[in-house]
């Protein structure tokens, strides 16, 4: 948050790489990384979803 320009530039590079991989979703266990990546993915109108690892597990849960 101190230097949003730097973290934004870092995330943009990462998002470009994620997009190029042709994956459905990016999964992380760190909520702050995830929120940032999600923000950048949305801003670039990418179809890649961002999921917390708990969400991924919940999706597989037969009882939910």
């Amino acid at each position: 948050m101190t230097y949003p320009e730097i973290s934004g530039a870092m995330a943009d590079e990462k998002v470009k790489e994620i997009d190029a991989k042709g994956v459905d979703a990016v999964v992380s266990c760190d909520i702050s990384c995830l929120m940032q990546l999600e923000g950048r993915l949305k801003a670039t109108r990418s179809a890649v979803k961002s999921l917390h690892v708990a969400q991924l597990l919940a999706e597989q849960d037969p009882e939910s």
């Binding site: 948050m1 949003p4 973290s7 934004g8 995330a11 929120m35 999600e38 919940a58």
Partner: peptide, 26 residues
């Protein structure tokens, strides 16, 4: 600070039940 933070990120919308509740139910 929220505005600065938001300039590079998105705030997730909480949906459904919480993790703690679901964990307890299981």
């Amino acid at each position: 600070p929220l505005a600065a933070w938001r300039s590079e990120r998105s705030v997730p919308r909480p949906e459904g039940d919480t993790f703690r509740n679901r964990w307890k139910a299981r």
